[in-house]
Amino acid sequence: MRLLILTSRADCLGENDVLISNAFRRFGWEVIFGEINAIAADDYRYFTQGVTVQGSGEPRHVSSAAQETLSVYFFDECQLIWANSEPHSSVARDVWQMLWLASQHTAFVNSIEGMMLLNTKHALGYLVPKNNRAYSYASNDFSLLSDRYQQSPDQWWVAKPPNASCGQNVFLLPPNGPNVRTILQCLTGNAFGEIGFRPLPEQEFRTVIQRQPRHGLSGFKAEYAILQQFIPEVAQGEKRVIVVCGQATAWHGRKRRADDHRSNIAQGGKAIPVDLHSGEIELAELIGQKLMEHGINFVGIDLAYPYVMEVNIADPGGLYDAQLASGIDRSDKVAELIIDHFQKSHSPNEV
């Protein structure tokens, strides 16, 4: 049996890649690391460049396998494909299209349509019960978000892009904050007020704005932002829960730095050992089972109970940090659940 793990580069692996690879190899599978940005087609038969894993390695370091010469691997010669990274933005549209087409013939751990459409903060309203998510607004119009912020003068808010990860561009907005206007303008693309915009008579200006909303000298510039009520429970730290085939399988806590409101590991947060109580397990597995309806079988869920802060589908770190925090490697359980799920849902010659 052959598993193809698609990662950004075969010589610089993500934190889950090695643990997952070693676990599948312990179950007797052949594992290949393939580059997601190198996908190509030979008469509509899809392949990528990669290396067969010969030994173990450490996350985010060059592994012994990745030092070998890249070879070509066809998707239809693999029984299972795990897209464990997102394609670069310059080729993303083509890569997603080819991956979806390939997925019509080969099993993927996480469905391509699920990765494309549900790996976003917009999806929280669909995936998470109302009582377990913070109230939020989404818009690419700075004035709408600014008006909503001003309507609740005593409320703390968080502003962030809907499709960024690792805590990038996440801002804490206090009541009457002096930089709120600037932050919201920045997050929504600074679509108005460009330097060099020619002043127009009022009537003509209104006509231009009505005809070309949020267009500047360089064209349409608006970007979406989320304005979300700040949840005090976050100050106590968040928990990352890895849910596999609907089961909470590994977890760790995240302790934020004293000088930062974010607890993301990428932003200096520290992985710490934690326990999950029954309510946290039930909530995480409820979301995991909902995601399985859309072909998502491996996900990282961030909890500040009773709230869900994030649902991470594309390369959700957590296995390695959970092992560091607890001393327990749960990757064999991950592989067991994935293999069992696909053996039940696919014919023997597929998996």
Rank of each mutant, 00 (worst) to 15 (best):
T182L: 02
S152V: 12
S143N: 10
S326Y: 03
A66C: 11
A191E: 00
W96Y: 08
Q185C: 08
I195Q: 11
G189L: 02
N190W: 01
D332A: 13
N176Q: 11
I301T: 13
P199T: 05
V158Q: 03
R181K: 13
S218W: 00
V72F: 03
V91P: 06
A325M: 01
S85F: 05
L117M: 02
E77K: 14
I272H: 01
A304S: 09
M98T: 08
E285N: 02
I81V: 15
F74H: 15
N349H: 15
N190V: 06
M116E: 01
D340Q: 05
F192C: 12
D321Y: 13
V18D: 06
H294I: 04
S278H: 03
C245G: 14
Q210L: 12
H122W: 09
I281K: 05
I112E: 01
G189Q: 01
Q343R: 05
S111G: 05
F74R: 15
L184W: 05
C78T: 12
R2N: 13
N169E: 04
A314Y: 02
H122L: 14
S331R: 01
N297C: 10
L6R: 08
R93N: 15
I81M: 10
R254N: 04
F108P: 06
M309E: 00
Y137D: 12
S218P: 01
D329P: 06
A304L: 00
I287R: 07
L101N: 13
F33M: 07
L117P: 00
G300L: 03
A266V: 04
V334M: 12
P129H: 12
I328P: 05
E238P: 05
E58K: 07
S331G: 12
H346D: 04
S21F: 05
Q343N: 07
S278A: 15
S278C: 08
V158M: 10
P201C: 05
F142W: 04
L145R: 10
G269N: 02
W96P: 06
F75Y: 09
S8Q: 08
R198W: 01
T249A: 10
W157K: 13
G246D: 04
D260T: 07
S152P: 03
D340N: 09
H122F: 14
L303M: 02
Y126L: 15
I231L: 11
S111I: 00
K344W: 01
D154S: 14
E282P: 07
H122Q: 11
E113C: 08
D43V: 09
G177E: 04
N140K: 11
R214V: 03
E35S: 15
S263R: 02
R330P: 10
L303G: 08
F205I: 06
S263L: 02
Q229N: 08
M115G: 15
D275E: 06
K239W: 00
G327M: 04
N349Y: 13
N190A: 12
L283I: 13
N297M: 02
R330M: 15
Y46T: 03
Q104H: 13
K239T: 14
I265Q: 03
C245P: 01
A40I: 02
Y224V: 13
P153Y: 07
A138K: 10
A65T: 10
P232I: 08
I313R: 03
G246I: 14
L217I: 05
A335K: 11
E58N: 08
R60K: 13
K255G: 08
W96D: 07
L145Q: 07
A235T: 07
R257H: 10
